[in-house]
Nucleic acid binder design. Sequence first.
DNA 1: TTGTAAGCGTTATCAT
DNA 2: ATGATAACGCTTACAA
Lengths: 321, 321
Amino acid sequence: MTVSRALNDRSNVDKKTKEKIIQKAKSMGYTPNRVAKSLVSRKTQTIGVVIPEITHAFFPEVVRGIEEVTYRSDYQLILTNANEQFEREQHAVNTLRSQQVDGILISSSQTVEDYAFYKEIVNSKTHLVFFDRCIQGIGASCVHVNDRESSELITRHLIEVHQYEKIAHLSGPREVTIGRERYMGYQEALEKSNLTENRDWIVEAGFKEEGGYQAMKKILELPQSDQPRAIVCVNDPVAFGAMEAIKEAGRKIPDDFAITGFSDEIRAPLVEVPLTTVHQPAYEVGRRAAEKLLKLIDGESEQPEDIEITATIQIRKSCGC
Amino acid sequence: MTVSRALNDRSNVDKKTKEKIIQKAKSMGYTPNRVAKSLVSRKTQTIGVVIPEITHAFFPEVVRGIEEVTYRSDYQLILTNANEQFEREQHAVNTLRSQQVDGILISSSQTVEDYAFYKEIVNSKTHLVFFDRCIQGIGASCVHVNDRESSELITRHLIEVHQYEKIAHLSGPREVTIGRERYMGYQEALEKSNLTENRDWIVEAGFKEEGGYQAMKKILELPQSDQPRAIVCVNDPVAFGAMEAIKEAGRKIPDDFAITGFSDEIRAPLVEVPLTTVHQPAYEVGRRAAEKLLKLIDGESEQPEDIEITATIQIRKSCGC
DNA sequence: TTGTAAGCGTTATCAT
DNA sequence: ATGATAACGCTTACAA
């Protein structure tokens, strides 16, 4: 007990004893066992982070934001990559709970409408904050950008500034918030300009480059007269995939197809035709999500919160500007 | 005890009892406490990863490789970012040890010649594998590419193919393996062609873009007649920083300065003048490092190993090709 | 097949 | 100022 007190710098230990203990500990190469400590304190100083895809540059940047906050508060990050598979995501969350993490930050790959899994987690009082891809209506906090509005704005840019009327959408899965929201923004922009939606021009592409490539191929298979003039993509990787398909088909950006993305990841300004996209402050998203989670852990803020961060349109050449 | 047996699917439990227990556990929302389990088993199924800079695209890619291996073996990753500060790195390692991780994967930011810290870690029998930036001669394993040779090859490309004779080097810190090795490769290439090294053309730039920018500025301050014709950079971010400085000065790549990098990160083929660089198989580095660590943990391979992965030269336009 | 006792390394609580 | 005891939740070893 005295050893414990000395090593934790408590007041009620004799100076000399303390000195001796610290010396001895050092000479032994002693390291306190946090596992044992956690067992009694019911606190691990550990936060679980689940991301859907570590290769999408948006997420490492979010992790940096999270890191900034957690480092200062002496929390460790347990990072897991769900690889866009809900099954892996569930496994990750269960393991993290079993590891007694003090809280979980997650961007969900879930593509089913059944929210039982997360409802149970929330009910179990596990501290949980979603970021970017949220599951709403189950009483969990969420940090995300104004997806719908931004998607509407970028679509309207195509309509109002460039006078394009035939606009396609390479969408994310409809069951994922950002997939749904960005699609709705696109729809609203069309409606406001009295453009009618063309079913052939809405193609689900997932969130990855390969999906964008495949989706664009479908559009390129339409008779030329039925092809759209502009493409609104659910995110940057999908836009890059689509660009690849367009290039392969010998068509030109923005002359044959204007195209837009969403994320503004590191490659967006660098590709052959720089990508007009929505700038999502990834670092900020991570920071805010981590801050909210720490508040929940510290019991400072009981109520769930929906935190919206404003994204901005980043105009480059791919839209025809 | 019977509960423990049932939940761990041991053989000696009555079928009906087991069924009942599992049902009850589910209905209670019971999650086993791995912290308690770890305390007795002295195993956490957890691996610590320390990287110097999460924004350098090379490292997330390494993490992906690590992830692939550890996911299959049911290990969790605790990720920490040392931000190129050795102090933070030490703190991270100490915390990880205190957390009883089963092993540590680390790319060191250490810039001092004093290896006492890691010697102690190795002696304490903590399983440790370095990757990319190693600390050698202390009996730890290391996974890295053939830095010196690759650096020599890319420098010789500048000399032999392009006939450049005035070649500068924006180096990493001399105390870090890759800084030293890549510098030595550069030197050897010069020697083999009987070119003499010019002190003004060796500028330490660290590993980040900003460092590359500043270092290049110094070179641009030399009288034009004393300026080099080509720049060999210690890694891609430094090369990007240098490119920025060159552009600002109104000079041209590769006409005024040829330039090369090292990493072949995601931006290398995309920048204005695509970067000739050394392609480092980051995913492979991560995979191999994780595999070696798991072997050490399982006691399969006692002896430390130096694992060298072959990098390849990636020719693009920035060298004048 | 089921149960009891002890211990993993730490800290809170209550003596001394 | 120091120490003894119990407890955190689990598993191993040994009964019953």
